[in-house]
Design a protein around this nucleic acid. Sequence first.
DNA 1: TTCCCATACTCAAGAATATGACTAATCATA
DNA 2: TATGATTAGTCATATTCTTGAGTATGGGAA
Lengths: 189, 189
Amino acid sequence: MALKHAVLAALLDGEFSGYQLAKAFDIGVANFWHALPQQLYAELTRLEAEGLVAGRQVVQETRPNKRLFRVTDEGLAELERFAAAASRPSFIRDDLLVKVQAVDRIDAAPVIGQLGERARMAAAKVEIFEQLLVRLRGGADEAEFLAHGTRIGPYLTCLRGLGFERETRDWCERIAGVLRARADAPDRA
Amino acid sequence: MALKHAVLAALLDGEFSGYQLAKAFDIGVANFWHALPQQLYAELTRLEAEGLVAGRQVVQETRPNKRLFRVTDEGLAELERFAAAASRPSFIRDDLLVKVQAVDRIDAAPVIGQLGERARMAAAKVEIFEQLLVRLRGGADEAEFLAHGTRIGPYLTCLRGLGFERETRDWCERIAGVLRARADAPDRA
DNA sequence: TTCCCATACTCAAGAATATGACTAATCATA
DNA sequence: TATGATTAGTCATATTCTTGAGTATGGGAA
């Protein structure tokens, strides 16, 4: 039940509609969690029923009406409890790694292709995150911002996302290179 | 349906029982996927019914009997198909990141504690992976092994696991430091 | 002026994953 | 000589996540 808390955490920075949250959780700008729109709408409904978030209708003329949600005091208390409890460890679960694990026994060509593609996706995220970090610290020096900024949570998780994507990019490029070299100069075992 | 292929990939390196796989997938030594014992036993049963793995009973006197599984030719063909198809992108999903995201609005102390704990766990995994890499390349030079080794898949995924855990360790230590410093020298905003 | 895209959301069903409880034997430890 | 850990699994249930389809409106491009 951690999507619940991810939504609460995402709503700490203001009022958002399900649609807005959905975009953030889908693209992975909210790089601390991932979820589909359907999950988010359902979760928001549950959270509102529990009184952990409060929604208000915003009538729009040019667009469909929307509901904006904010965290209630009870919601914040629930987050507090969640943070104090033990975290379940996080695990890697990645199709591409499964393919690399098997790469000696299957055709390497499509795996090499997918490694390149993944590397490009990771590189794109690296750029996005780097720009986001600059925006979040508002031009200030990083050390200064981390020491005295008033809202550093999103910055810290973005740092994690940045490190993760850099690692992904570098690993994919390196492994693709290794596999290409083996394909070019085959087995003189 | 990727647990299926993770199991197939794990069985490429020999015959294993459900119990052995369960340990590997639980601890995360099989660092390319994670699954619980119940999932694995169920998956092995399904895979055997589909003819993708073959099991044989091994009678033991001092221990309960066990069933060892190996990948069939059809299983290998299935892996081949899987590798050629597109991978679904992998996403971060981590309780601890949710807590860090919220850290400005809740008590930071338990989060700092959990960051330290997670850093220690990651450091332990780094050591395990480093030793595993040495064992996998059998004393050979890494570049030489990657160029001419006969089974590099597990080595490559282990490299990814190592990079991931190093990143995790460093990030956790850095963030814990940042949060401790803010707790010691509080807000003169 | 038709078609696609963005906004904003809902419903249903299915697949995958997690939780908890159980059996049953041997082995080491206190 | 209890106690707990390790080996080797099974069963049932609950939660979570994914897939697919659908509703409705307005704006911009072809």
